[in-house]
C-alpha cells in the first residue's frame, strides 16, 4: 500500500460540538438509513407491515368457503369502505400505497445489505459448517426473490386478470368465479403453492428475526418466540394453500 490512508476517521474530532451532523447530515431518518443496522431495522418494520397484511389477506380469502355471495360482497366492501367521506376505492389505494412503499424499501434494503455481505468475504472457505442456522434463514434471499416474482404474477393474475385466464373469463368483482377459474389451471395452482412454501420459510425465520432485530428476543424467550414465529408462518401457509387445494379437489366450484 502507498501512503498511509485514514481508515477510521473520528466522527467527532477534538473540540467539535456534540452531534454528528457533519458526518451524517441532519435528517434523523436518513442518518438511521445510512447505517447497515438502520437498513435492517427498516426491513424489520416493513416486515411487520407486510406480515400484518398477509394475515389479513389470508383471513379474507377464507370467506370463499362461505360461498360466492359472501366473498364478492367482501370485495366490494374493500372498495366502498370509508364512503361517502372517501371516494370509491380510495381506502384500498391508501393500503396499496403503504404496501408498495413497504415492499420497495424492504427489497432495496435486502439488495443493499446482501451486496455488503457478499463483498465482505471475497475469498470463501474450503469448508465451513453451520451449527445453529436453519434452512429458512439460509433461504431468506432466494425465497425473497421467489416472493417478488410471485407478487408481480399475483397482481397480473387475480387483480388485473391479464394472465392465466381465457379471454372474457376474468370479471372484476366476481372474485368467486375468478378464483375457481384461475385455480382450475393446475400449473397456476402449483405455482401458488410453491410461492406459499417460500412465504412459510420466509416468515418462519423472518418473524423471529424481526423480533431479534428490534431487540425483543432474549436468551430466555428466544425458543418461545421462534416457535411462535413458526406457528404464525404455518397458519398463514395453511390458510392460503387451502383455497387452491379446495379448487383442485373440487370442493368449491
Amino acid at each position: 500500500m502507498a501512503a498511509s490512508s485514514v481508515v477510521s476517521e473520528p466522527v467527532v474530532k477534538a473540540g467539535e460540538a456534540a452531534g454528528s451532523a457533519a458526518a451524517f447530515g441532519t435528517n434523523r431518518l436518513l442518518l438511521l438509513w445510512s447505517t447497515v443496522i438502520g437498513k435492517k431495522i427498516v426491513m424489520a418494520v416493513t416486515g411487520v407491515i407486510m406480515v400484518a397484511f398477509v394475515i389479513a389477506h389470508m383471513l379474507g380469502n377464507l370467506k370463499i368457503f362461505a360461498g360466492p355471495k359472501e366473498i364478492n360482497t367482501y370485495s366490494r366492501f374493500l372498495r366502498e369502505v370509508g364512503m361517502p367521506e372517501l371516494g370509491y376505492g380510495d381506502a384500498l389505494w391508501i393500503v396499496r400505497l403503504v404496501l408498495i412503499t413497504a415492499v420497495t424499501l424492504h427489497i432495496i434494503a435486502a439488495v443493499t445489505l446482501t451486496r455488503v455481505s457478499w463483498q465482505a468475504r471475497p475469498i470463501g472457505y474450503r469448508e465451513r459448517k453451520d451449527l445453529e442456522t436453519s434452512f429458512a434463514a439460509r433461504w431468506m434471499r432466494w425465497g425473497g426473490v421467489i416472493l417478488a416474482v410471485f407478487i408481480v404474477f399475483h397482481i397480473l393474475h387475480f387483480t388485473l386478470g391479464m394472465v392465466g385466464f381465457q379471454p372474457g373469463q376474468f370479471r372484476e368483482l366476481h372474485v368467486y368465479s375468478n378464483v375457481v377459474a384461475g385455480f382450475s389451471v393446475w400449473p397456476v395452482s402449483a405455482f401458488y403453492i410453491l410461492a406459499m412454501l417460500a412465504l412459510f420459510s420466509h416468515l418462519d425465520h423472518g418473524i423471529w428475526s424481526m423480533l431479534q432485530t428490534l431487540g425483543w428476543s432474549t436468551a430466555r424467550n428466544q425458543a418461545t418466540l421462534r416457535l411462535a414465529s413458526r406457528l404464525i408462518a404455518g397458519v398463514v401457509f395453511a390458510g392460503f394453500v387451502s383455497v387452491p387445494v379446495a379448487v383442485l379437489a373440487g370442493w368449491i366450484q
Binding site: V36, K40, V116, S117, A120, L131, T133, S209, T213
Partner: peptide, 10 residues
Amino acid sequence: LFGSCTNHGE
C-alpha cells in the same frame, strides 16, 4: 467492510 447480519446465530 464487515458484512450485514441476517440473524443466523452462527
